[in-house]
Structure formats: C-alpha cells, structure tokens
Amino acid sequence: MEGLKMADTELMVYIHPSKCGNEFSAVCRELSSLLFQYDETLDGVLLAFDFTMKSKGAKVLAGLNPYFGVKVESKLLLFNPKPNSRVEGKIVKISPESVHVIVLGFSAAIITDVDIREEFKYTMRNGEGCFVSTSHKRHVLKVGTMLRLQVQSFDEEVMHIAGSLLPVDTGCVKWLEKQSEEALRSVDLEDHKRRKIT
C-alpha cells in the first residue's frame, strides 16, 4: 500500500528530570505520545517506532524546568498518503451517494458518488446496499470488502481521506488481485505457446 514509509532518524527526546531513573522507559513514553498523530517534523502520522539509545548520558537543558535531552536512533513507520496514491481499507458503510472506508483502522475515507466510476451501480442484495460492476458481475463493493482507492486529499488534523474510484485499478482488492493473476497466467500461456512453435 502506498502512503506508508519507513524512516531512519536521529532524534533528541526531552524527558523530565523525575524520569531520569529509567531513561529507556521515559523515551518510550514520549515517543508513544506521538502515535496516531500527524507530526510536521516527521511529515506523517507515526504508526510504530523502534529505537536505540545513542549515548548513555543525557544532556541537561537549562531553563525554568530543566529537561534532559537524550539522543536516540529510531526507525519510524509513517503514514502520509499523497494525492493520486493508492491506499486500502475496509468498507464500513455504503449508501447510494457514498462509500465509507476505514484505512489502517484509524483513518476515515469517503468516496462520494461523483468519484465512483459509472460502471458501478448501486443495488440492494440480501437486504444490504452494494455497488456492482455492470462490466464484471463478480466485482462487488459491499460492507466488509477490502477496497483499494485513489487518494484525492488527506486532512492531517482529522485523519480524513477524500478518495476516488475513478481509476480502473481501484475497487475490491480481492477481485483486482484475481484479475491480475489471470492476466499473468494468460501472458505465460501465450509465451509458452510461442516457444513451442519456434
């Protein structure tokens, strides 16, 4: 999935003197406070981290409330989907006007009817609303479906994605992967036939 990136960074983490007895735990607590929030310095939403203390000693910072600055080397997993990138999420609600998706369990995405390609038509199946492709009857978008969508914009403050299903490489992830496998098989068969002839 696009929008996820790993970053190797050196950070200076500031901890209160009362926490200097266990620097590792204090640094872990400070980094944990950044989880699932957009950070401009990191240019993304921090999803996970791993770190090692760079030095044993901490630098005392002068001021009214002196803090310790601890240098750490860290690996960070960040989420920052850019416009036109593809992300995947689970459909949680469908109406004739929109599809609502949860991406990575914390970011909401919405695709409005103007951003759903014309081949998808809203219908009721077994008492539930869904979008069914008129070109491929097995390509169905319903609640619980894993969906690949194109990012139009990402609001960092509320973690909200405005998405689109207009590109042909968007839709039900399972169906798209099956189509991709079948296309590869047919290319392999044609290649095999050509080799036999020559």
Rank of each mutant, 00 (worst) to 15 (best):
L42Y: 11
L42A: 12
L42F: 10
D43V: 02
D43R: 02
G44E: 03
V45Y: 06
V45F: 06
L47W: 07
A48V: 02
A48I: 03
F49G: 06
F49P: 12
F49L: 13
F49Y: 15
F49T: 11
D50V: 03
D50F: 08
F51S: 02
K54P: 11
S55N: 12
S55G: 12
K56Q: 14
K56Y: 12
G57W: 02
A58T: 10
V60L: 09
L61Q: 04
G63P: 00
G63Y: 00
L64Y: 05
N65Y: 13
N65A: 12
Y67P: 00
F68Y: 15
G69M: 09
G69A: 12
V70P: 00
V70G: 00
K71H: 08
V72N: 01
V72G: 08
E73S: 08
S74Q: 08
L78Y: 13
L78W: 15
F79C: 05
P81S: 10
P83K: 11
S85Y: 03
S85F: 01
V87Y: 07
E88M: 12
E88P: 05
G89R: 03
G89H: 06
K90S: 10
I91A: 03
V92E: 09
I94G: 06
S95F: 14
S95Q: 15
P96N: 10
P96T: 14
P96K: 14
S98F: 09
I102N: 03
I102P: 00
V103Q: 02
V103T: 10
L104P: 02
F106G: 02
S107K: 04
S107P: 05
A108N: 05
A109S: 04
A109F: 05
A109C: 09
A109W: 03
I110E: 07
I110W: 06
I110T: 09
T112G: 10
D113M: 14
D113I: 15
D113E: 15
V114K: 06
R117K: 05
E118Q: 13
E119G: 03
E119L: 03
K121P: 08
K121C: 06
T123W: 08
T123V: 02
T123R: 08
M124S: 05
N126L: 15
N126T: 11
E128W: 15
G129M: 05
G129V: 06
C130T: 13
C130Y: 12
V132S: 05
V132T: 09
T134Y: 01
T134I: 06
T134H: 02
H136N: 07
K137Y: 07
K137T: 06
K137F: 04
R138N: 08
H139M: 00
V140G: 00
V140I: 04
V140N: 00
V143C: 06
G144A: 11
T145V: 04
T145S: 02
M146A: 03
R148F: 15
V151G: 00
Q152F: 01
D155W: 03
D155M: 06
E157Q: 02
I161R: 05
I161T: 07
G163H: 11
G163Y: 08
L166C: 12
P167F: 15
P167W: 14
V168W: 01
D169H: 11
D169P: 04
T170C: 09
T170E: 05
G171L: 10
G171A: 13
C172V: 14
C172P: 12
V173P: 04
K174Q: 11
W175R: 12
W175Q: 13
L176R: 14
E177M: 15
K178Q: 09
Q179V: 11
Q179Y: 10
Q179S: 13
Q179P: 09
